[in-house]
Structure formats: C-alpha cells, structure tokens
C-alpha cells in the first residue's frame, strides 16, 4: 500500500503585496509521517515564507496544502491544534519568567493545572533549565532562550513540529541538547520540518532535505544520497554552494 503523505503541498505560490516577483513559486512537495525534513536555502530563498504558510500565519497566493488530511483553507484551527512552531526569533515574553511563559503557551493549547506543570518541569529538566523556572527570560543567555523557545513549541506534543533555524547563534552544548531532543522526539513519531543554514547539522539530522533557491525547489532527497549522486562534491555544503551559487544574497 502506498503511504499517504502527512503534509501535501501542491503548486504553492506566494506573492507579497507590492512585489512582482514571487517569494515562492509552484512548490510541490510531500512530507511523510515520521520524517525530519530539512528546508535548506540561502537568505531570501523562501524557507520562512513556506514555514509561515504551513503554520497558517498568512495564506498562499495559489496552491493547496493539507496536513494530516486537513485542508489549510477550510480547517486552519484544526491544523493549528496539531502543529508546534519554533520561530526563528525568540518568541517569548522577556519580562515573564520561564514558567509564566510556558504556562501561558500551554494554556492556549488547553493544558492546565498539574498536567501542565508536570509537562513543563519535565522539559525544563531535559533542557537543563529547571533551576531557572522562576527567573525572568531577559536574564537568560542566548542558548537558554533558544532552549526555552523550543520547549514553548512542543508542550502540547504536536504531531508535526516546525522549526525555523532553531540552533542559530547558540553554543555547541545547547545545540547538541536541542538536536538530541529533536531526534528523540522524532523517534516517538513526531514529524519535524526544519530550516537551517548549517548544512552539516541538516546532513546529520534530516531524513530528507529540499534545497530551495529563489522560491523554487532545486533539489530534493536524502542528504547522503544527494551527495552520493554528485561524487564531485564531498559534502552537502559543497553541493549546496554548487546548486545555489556563491553570489551574496540579501
């Protein structure tokens, strides 16, 4: 039996108001349950736009998206209940404590009381933040904020987790903790869609990657197989540079 895609994207196009060039054009993509799927591309390639549309932050100009069989146009709230989002920026309230931030976001997913407190403490322990539960976020280091940002997106145990450059600008230790946790989460069945500029990280983490440039997918597949298909490049980064060029991007 052919496996049904968990996320189906068909002919996805997005024009921003006032722009004649599409931010993404005619992207068609299937992502399967249990995958860690990497969206890779230079700045302005369309990664964040794709993730934002998938999260329902703004509508596509054209195209169709279904997640777990739910159409994004007709059942957006249903989709929002099963997805978790970890934005590129630290999307937390700096003057609230870690506990207050997580409690608020948990509450918004109908989590309350003891169950929520246990979930929060469990994750704070995993990410080494339990001692800082009652500290305000603006006293946290960059790595601590990133870890907390990740916890806020997965308290409700989403079926699919969108991560937009979750490891940017943090120390190696924090990065290892985050990546290990994502792998563990994926083993439990969570589908992960992830964008990054770190090719080595993507190569090790992702079961499949799509390289996007100027709004279009230019290559897609298992990272190791992609490199193997191009023996002249020794790793994903070299292949990426070959496919997207060395020209500086805005």
């Amino acid at each position: 039996m052919v496996e049904q895609p968990f996320i189906r994207i068909q002919d996805l196009t997005k024009y921003y108001k006032g722009s004649s060039d599409p931010a993404i054009k005619s992207i068609t993509l299937d992502i399967f349950k249990g995958e860690i799927f990497g969206l890779l591309g230079p700045n302005g390639a369309g990664k964040t736009t794709t993730i934002s549309i998938l999260c329902g932050l703004f509508p596509p100009t054209e195209g169709m998206i279904t997640i777990n069989g739910l159409d994004i146009k007709s059942d957006l709230q249903g989709i929002k209940r099963i997805i978790g989002v970890v934005p590129q920026e630290v999307a937390l309230y700096p003057t609230l404590t870690a506990m207050e931030n997580l409690t608020f976001f948990g509450n918004m997913y109908n989590l309350r009381g003891k169950v929520l407190r246990e979930k929060i403490m469990e994750r704070l322990i995993v990410f080494g933040l339990e001692r800082f539960a009652k500290k305000k976020v603006d006293t946290f280091s960059g790595g601590m904020k990133r870890r907390l940002n990740l916890i806020a997106g997965l308290l409700h145990e989403p079926k699919v987790l969108f991560l937009d450059e979750p490891t940017v600008g943090i120390d190696v230790q924090s990065r290892i903790v985050i990546l290990d946790y994502l792998k563990a989460l994926n083993k439990q069945g969570t589908t992960i869609i992830y964008t990054s500029h770190y090719m080595e990280e993507a190569e090790n983490l992702c079961s499949r990657v799509a390289i996007i440039d100027r709004g279009s997918i230019i290559s897609i597949g298992n990272p190791k197989e992609l490199v193997a298909d191009h023996p002249e490049f020794k790793n994903l980064e070299n292949l990426f540079l070959y496919l997207t060029g060395k020209e500086l991007r805005d």
Binding site: S52, L92, F105
Partner: peptide, 13 residues
C-alpha cells in the same frame, strides 16, 4: 518585533 506574535498567530486561538 520581538517575534511573540509569530507564535501567537500559530496558536489555535
């Protein structure tokens, strides 16, 4: 500007 809105808009509310 702080990015919280991104997360708020992705919430099922």
């Amino acid at each position: 500007e702080g990015g919280s809105l991104f997360r708020l808009l992705s919430l099922p509310i």
